[in-house]
Write a protein that binds this DNA or RNA. Structure first.
Length: 475
RNA sequence: GCCCCGAUCGUCUAACCUGGUUAGGACAUUGGCUUUUCAAGCCAGCAAUACGGGUUCAAAUCCCGUUCGGGGCGCCA
């Protein structure tokens, strides 16, 4: 049985890049009928916050990602929060001590930092120099007696070629001599990322670790730990990272990048998920528009690109508009209502026709809602509008239209067409656009929008005349 | 600095593994059509194998180097 996990640390909002990692893990699990585990990596006590865990889970669910095992769902290998697994790490840490695979390091952070700077200046790799590894028992004892704090470091074997077969990248290798002895437990006994990850992946029987390329170099350390602990390592798949338009890794300064941001803007979850799945991956049939759950079964992990990709908001807007078109007006108004946005009070059938007419032009629910209210809401007569309509032929068209409409007994589609036809006849020089644009401007305040027939139907005879009158009074 | 990874249109990508394509698609952009403006839709155009060697009858594809980009070298994850 294939088992994968997504292991975020609750130090902020779920980011587009992390969401993408979660999504690929989810799809991989689904495609292979495996299990998807959510594990919260909250060993950084200073930065981890409980509310971020809740937010993380909410964002994941919003995107349509469900997990089989996790802090809330439970599961056979829990607990799924690292802060609740401290006793487990302690057990394995003791084991490593017994084996002599680790040692106590009394270097202070300040010392370490100084030596790091010196190393960089001297052109040496800024890694730990392993000096506490050589401490005698007596030295260790006297340090401890003096009450000095210590961390636990793992003894990296010397001159060993570490290599593994990455599912996406193929063979990857490095010489262990380049690696310094790394910290696996802090003075308070809390494990470091490396130690917690390896222990948990092993104990949770994770078969495939799908994560960002930023962890590629860490994998060498993890492999060493797996070996020391006597566990079989999982398969690794390191995905390319996502960058902003400037080529730098996607971060807060690129603007809208957290899942919460997209949600707040009114993007629909299926569109966001669709869009980020296209970063570094393409569906076997080359389709670009889909719902994740519809294509997940065809997901192939080795189809992932090795090179980083740039997130393009324009493409998201297009995908989002396409998803908008796929939904019915009824569904769309439900979703808008669910956001706490109010719709103007007009006939439901007409409203739905209006939504169907303009939904393809919007990328977000907020945008769609704004479009609707802009059309139906009170008309703001701006100076720009005034200057465009206060001269002929616009002026003439408007007064002719008002006059004829006033006289008309009915105000339906045919009547409207007839009136337009008459105005055209009476003003031979005018193109149809010369008639429609002023009319649309006077009635809706904008030169773009849905079909005029629909608009006239929505406003009705009196509505139209009121709007025209309101306008002429202000000019 | 050292190590690891990568490189196809402006962007996302297909073709790479298993050498032979007019290097395909999508977004964006440009033009046209349609039209009840705009949008949408439809059609068309622009646009790429980073560079240099090698292997081969043949290289985007395999190999080496250069350049460029990213990541890592934390008591962050």
């Amino acid at each position: 049985m294939i088992r994968v996990r997504f292991a975020p640390s609750p130090t902020g909002f779920l980011h587009l890049g992390n969401a993408r990692t979660a999504l690929f893990n989810y799809m991989f699990a689904k495609a292979n009928k495996g299990a998807f585990i959510l594990r919260i990596e909250d060993t950084d006590r200073e930065r981890s916050r409980e509310e971020y865990t809740a937010q993380l889970m909410e964002d994941l669910k919003w995107l349509g990602i469900r997990w089989d095992e996790g802090p809330d769902a439970g599961g056979p290998y829990g607990p799924y929060k690292q802060s609740e697994r401290l006793h487990i790490y302690k057990e394995y840490l003791d084991k490593l001590f017994t084996q002599g695979a680790v040692y106590k390091c009394f270097c202070t952070e300040k010392e370490l930092e100084e030596r790091r700077q010196i190393a960089i200046l001297a052109g040496r790799p800024p890694r730990y120099d392993n000096r506490c590894r050589a401490l005698t028992e007596g030295q260790v004892k006297s340090f401890q007696d003096a009450g000095r704090e210590y961390v636990i470091r793992f003894k990296v074997p010397e001159n060993t070629r570490i290599s593994f077969n990455d599912v996406i990248r193929g063979r990857v290798e490095q010489d262990s001599s380049l690696l310094g002895d790394f910290v696996i437990a802090r003075p308070d006994g809390i494990p470091s990322f490396h130690f917690a990850v390896v222990t948990d992946d092993a104990l949770m029987k994770v078969t495939h670790v799908i994560r960002g390329e930023d962890h590629l170099s860490n994998t060498f350390l993890h492999l060493l730990l797996f070996k020391a602990l006597g566990f079989e390592p999982p398969q690794y798949a390191h995905m390319s990272l996502t960058k902003g338009a400037d080529g730098a890794l996607l971060s807060k300064r690129h603007g809208v990048t957290s899942i919460k941001d997209f949600r707040d803007k009114g993007y629909m979850p299926e569109a966001v998920a669709n869009c980020i799945s296209l970063l570094g991956w393409s569906a076997p049939d080359k389709k670009e528009l889909f719902r994740i759950d519809d294509i997940a079964d065809a997901f192939k992990i080795d189809h992932l690109s090795k090179s980083p990709s740039v997130f393009d908001l324009k493409k998201l807007d297009w995908i989002a508009a396409e998803h908008m078109k796929l939904l019915s007006a009824g569904e769309l108004s439900l979703r808008i209502a669910a956001r706490g946005l109010f719709m103007p009070q007009i006939d439901g059938v007409l409203l739905h026709r209006l939504i169907d007419d303009i939904k393809g032009g919007a990328s977000t629910l907020n945008g769609l809602h704004a479009g609707i209210t802009a059309i139906l809401g009170p008309l703001a007569v701006t100076d720009g509008l005034k200057s465009r309509l206060s001269q002929d032929p616009a002026r003439k068209v408007l007064s002719a239209f008002a006059e004829k409409t006033e006289k008309a007994e009915y105000f339906d589609r045919d009547t409207f067409d007839r009136i337009i036809g008459e105005i055209a006849e009476e003003n031979p020089g005018l193109k149809k656009r010369d008639i429609f644009v002023p009319l649309r401007l006077a009635v809706t305040g904008t030169d773009r929008g849905p079909d005029m027939h629909l608009l006239m139907e929505i406003f009705g005879k009196t509505g139209c005349l009121d709007r025209l009158k309101n306008f002429s009074e202000k000019v």
